[in-house]
Design a protein around this nucleic acid. Structure first.
Length: 855
RNA sequence: GCCUUGAUGGCGAAAUUGGCAAACGCGCUAGCUUCAGGAGCUAGUCCCUAAAAAGAUUGUGGGUUCGAAUCCCACUCAAGGCACCA
């Protein structure tokens, strides 16, 4: 019989949706399981095969958990607000609000095609005003607590997208979205204080069950480094500053100091000296080079002497202060003490003939000579021997660290300090398609705050208002600030959003004092939309459930969107699956916001995703799929031709889910054949009644097959739990190959097999299940249990080795003793061939496994 | 430079975590079939060999062990990430 997948799949999509088999009862659910997959952003015509790969992997896990008795919630939505979708709209010349509706239709259609068990009733879109109302609300909560602030600094600017970007969105100096070279611009922008949470973001990583590589990536991005801040004074000037040093062991080797060109102190150091003009020129030159990011670290380590000295607190001579291109203004204090025990410092000193000093030597005499003669730079050597200070002489570099830090602190030279590489999250964007930042700038209120008029009409200014004078949040009852329709939505490149062209939008009265004010015209970063969406599903549902109807939440702001009892019940997310590329973007931002919500008392957890697994990358002919390479695979054609089940199983059969794989369509026929055979096999049972031969559960006279069934159940159960779908499918094949060869299989065997197949091939298993006469969906059936007693073997194959080489195998009782085995084995001809005339030195016997004769 | 992951037949891969290397699938070869389709069935398919026995073989080189794809050391290559962070 021909398997008409197109007809069958359509039929079941409809039935599933109508009968709501994937909609959990949020209130009554006994064993809630939140199975989340990163929701897609519509930045192209449709989903590509990589998305399908990820969604299928997540869905198999969800279906498995559902059959294991959990109330699984598998939501879906679209991250359709923001630069990703806007860039696509720009490309095809359609207004983003119009394109959003088109994408919605197409994406949801594709997502239905793949056969996932989504809760369609709960879907959400981030551009829905009912959704971004809360994105704005969250912005205001952060503002009020002083976690959002405005600051002018050199920021990443994408000349193609014509907007600023967060550090996390700059990948290898290129824009995360369009791969253009990112440059630096000095602009005033909104930031979220994620650095305040650096330590917590780092520490909590030890408590969550995440893919190790994702955790490592976050750890490195946060970049904690412990060191010491040394106090310094500038000679003949009333200037004091600190320098950060992570390797205080060699602090006495420091012979000069370098300062970043952008450092505000540079001006004060040189004003009125003969160095003034040349240093200023140098600073300008470096700034310009840095702006276009054409700065080669290796080749262009340049500097200039400022004419000033540090009054050395250690009494080892004054340290000349240089401006050096390799110092970063934004890290540590932007000023660094330099020594012969640092490669860059060493090279810099050699280039400009600055004197060096050595305080640590290797044990090797020849090498030590070279170090002393400044021929090589000796650094980061755990076994280097410290020469100074005298108190630590003879200690190794590694061992000296602690006592030297104590020594420095005791002498009052400096203090222990921790620095992080993590920077604050740049949140504003000069684009159209995003949630308007819900703030208003009022000159009058700015004046009042500057004049310390901190309270008016019984209302006090909050922390955010005091720290950002003049900036007043939109009252929560007035949310959302609706994104106006602007025909010419193109980014302007002026440093202002297209919203700044709409007078009606930005001319508002100050919500605080009533005078004329100007609304913020920037929108917020897309990653803010997606940093809380996992909560959004519950928020809307909660409201709908309370009202007993499924409808969107009302416009009124309730106490808090997060106070739903369902959030307490369903969160944090039990299993989150997504791409590794979001390790330092979405996954970091989501954790940060959850911590903030936790601090605000909105939620009772601070880690949103208990378990996270990064799926592998699906490549095409060994290369990443991308439009520029022209190797993007369109899944629709494959689904149309072979069916969703074949496509799902083919993708999962490629390789382990967490490793990713290479899409070479030639193997797909194997899976197509396999499902075809299953379909024919299942149909041969179709005309029997369900009740018939129900008792054949016992597998009479088919001990071997019975055992295989139980082995397979065990294997697949474990494999799915570990996301090893490829070997689970292989186990299904092995079992089915055996079943086909059996002449008298019971309907029970068939049913059992279909259940094991169900998470992988939801349509065909459902179709055959129904043909067997079942009224209830197979996806709501109970997952088969295996009998571990049956798996115990009485007879086993004992492997016989001679000198560790495989020579023979014999079937014996599982509990055979060494002596018994020895007698049998040594009498065998095959073995005698090797042992004849040789002395047996040793016998290694692993019970139930192996017998090794050493001669 | 640093970090992560990986390297096993013609290809995708498997190996109970130190105990029969190559399960399962693709491809290929031969035969049988005929609902000419995305065919099906049977047998074979790591290398050397006419075949068998024996042997060699998991990127390279070394080590630990009765025994290594698996553990340790050094290196090579590939993919991805970070990178002036003192």
């Amino acid at each position: 019989m021909f398997y008409n997948h197109q007809k069958i799949e359509k039929k079941w999509q409809k039935i599933w949706e109508k009968e709501k088999i994937y909609e959990p009862n949020f209130k009554k659910a006994k064993r809630p399981f939140y199975n989340l997959m990163m929701f897609p952003y519509p930045s192209a015509e449709g989903l590509h095969v990589g998305n399908m790969y990820a969604f299928t992997g997540s869905d198999i896990y969800g279906r498995f958990k559902r059959m294991r008795g959990y109330d699984v919630f598998e939501p879906i939505g679209l991250d359709g607000f923001g630069i990703h979708s806007e860039n696509y709209a720009l490309k095809i010349g359609v207004h983003p609000s119009k394109q959003a509706k088109i994408s919605e239709k197409h994406f949801y259609k594709q997502l239905k095609m793949i056969g996932n068990g989504f809760s369609w009733d709960e879907k959400l879109e981030t551009y829905d005003p009912e959704y971004y109302k809360w994105t704005q609300w969250i912005f205001i909560q952060l503002f009020k607590r002083g976690l959002a602030y405005r600051k002018k600094q050199a920021v990443n600017w994408c000349p193609s997208c014509k907007t600023v970007l967060a550090d996390e969105q700059v990948i290898a100096e290129k824009c995360e979205r369009c791969s253009s070279e990112v440059i630096k611009k000095n602009l005033e922008q909104w930031f979220f204080k994620i650095t305040k949470y650096a330590e917590r973001l780092l520490k909590n990583l030890d408590m969550i069950d995440w893919s190790e590589r994702t955790k490592i990536a976050q750890k490195e991005w946060i970049g904690r480094s412990e060191g010491i801040n040394l106090k310094e004074k500038v000679k003949n000037l009333n200037i004091e500053f600190e320098v950060f040093d992570t390797i205080p062991q060699t602090f006495l080797a420091q012979t000069f100091t370098v300062i970043a060109p952008e450092h505000p102190l540079v001006e004060r150091l040189i004003t009125g000296t003969k160095y003034e003009k040349s240093v200023r020129e140098f600073v300008e030159k470096i700034k310009q080079k840095k702006a276009v990011n054409k700065f080669d670290v290796e080749k262009e380590s340049e500097g200039i002497f400022t004419g000033r000295y540090v009054d050395n607190p250690f009494g080892t001579g004054d340290l000349p202060i240089w401006v050096a291109s390799y110092v970063i203004a934004g890290y540590g204090t932007g000023i660094v003490n330099c020594s012969a025990h640092d490669e860059r410092d060493f090279a810099f000193a050699k280039k400009y003939n600055i004197p060096l000093k050595v305080v640590m030597l290797p044990l090797d005499v020849d090498l030590a000579k070279k170090v002393q003669n400044f021929e090589i730079c000796y650094h980061h050597a755990s076994d280097g021997i410290i020469q100074e200070p005298i108190e630590m002489k003879g200690m190794t570099w590694e061992k000296a660290r602690k006592p030297i830090i104590e020594y420095i602190e005791k002498k009052g030279f400096g203090k222990k300090t921790i620095n992080y590489h993590l920077r604050d999250w740049l949140i504003s964007r000069q684009r159209y398609w995003g949630p308007p930042i819900p703030l208003v700038f009022c000159e009058n209120c700015a004046e009042r705050i500057k004049n310390k008029e901190l309270g008016i009409k019984n209302k006090k200014f909050d922390k955010g208002e005091i720290e950002n004078p003049g900036w007043i949040p939109v009252p929560e009852k007035d949310l959302p600030v609706i994104l106006p329709y602007i025909k010419d939505f193109q980014p302007k490149g002026t440093g202002e959003s297209p919203l700044a062209t709409d007078k009606k939008f930005y001319e508002v009265k100050c919500p605080e004092c009533g005078k004329m004010a100007r609304r913020e015209t920037d929108v917020s970063d897309t990653f803010l939309d997606s940093a809380w969406y996992y909560l959004g599903y519950f928020f809307e549902n909660w409201k709908a459930t309370l009202r007993g109807v499924r409808q969107k939440a009302s416009r009124e702001i309730e106490n808090s969107p997060f106070s739903s009892p369902l959030i307490r019940k369903w969160l944090p997310v039990d299993m989150y699956i997504g791409g590794q590329e979001h390790a330092c973007l979405h996954l970091l931002y989501s954790r940060f916001l959850a911590m903030v919500f936790n601090d605000l008392g909105l939620i009772d957890f601070e880690e949103p995703f208990k378990k996270f697994r990064a799926h592998g990358l699906l490549t095409k002919d060994g290369a990443k799929m991308s439009k520029s390479r022209g190797n993007v695979v369109n899944p629709d054609e494959y689904i149309k031709k072979f069916g969703a089940d074949v496509f799902r199983m083919y993708l999962m059969f490629l390789s382990p889910f967490e490793r990713g794989g290479d899409f070479q369509s030639k193997g797909i026929l194997g899976i197509a054949r396999f499902l075809d055979r299953i379909f024919n096999f299942g149909n041969s049972f179709a005309n029997r009644k369900v009740g018939e031969k129900q008792t054949l559960n016992k597998f009479e006279n088919k001990k071997e097959l019975e055992k295989l069934f139980h082995q397979t159940i065990k294997k697949i159960t474990e494999d799915i739990e570990n996301l090893n779908y490829n070997t689970a499918i292989s186990a299904l094949m092995i079992l089915f190959n055996k079943m086909e060869k059996e002449s008298q299989l019971s309907i029970v065997n068939c049913q059992l097999f279909l259940k094991l197949l169900a998470p992988f091939a939801p349509f065909i298993s459902e179709e055959l299940w129904a043909k067997l006469g079942h009224k209830k969906s197979i996806h709501l059936e109970k997952w088969p249990e295996y009998n571990s007693r049956l798996l115990k073997q009485k007879k086993i194959i004992l492997i016989v080795q001679v000198n560790g080489k495989f020579r023979d195998k014999i079937e014996v009782n599982v509990d055979i003793s060494e002596q018994e085995a020895k007698e049998i084995i040594l009498s065998r001809e095959k073995i005698q061939k090797y042992t004849k005339g040789k002395e047996i030195k040793k016998i290694i016997f692993v019970p139930g496994k192996l017998f090794n004769i050493v001669i």
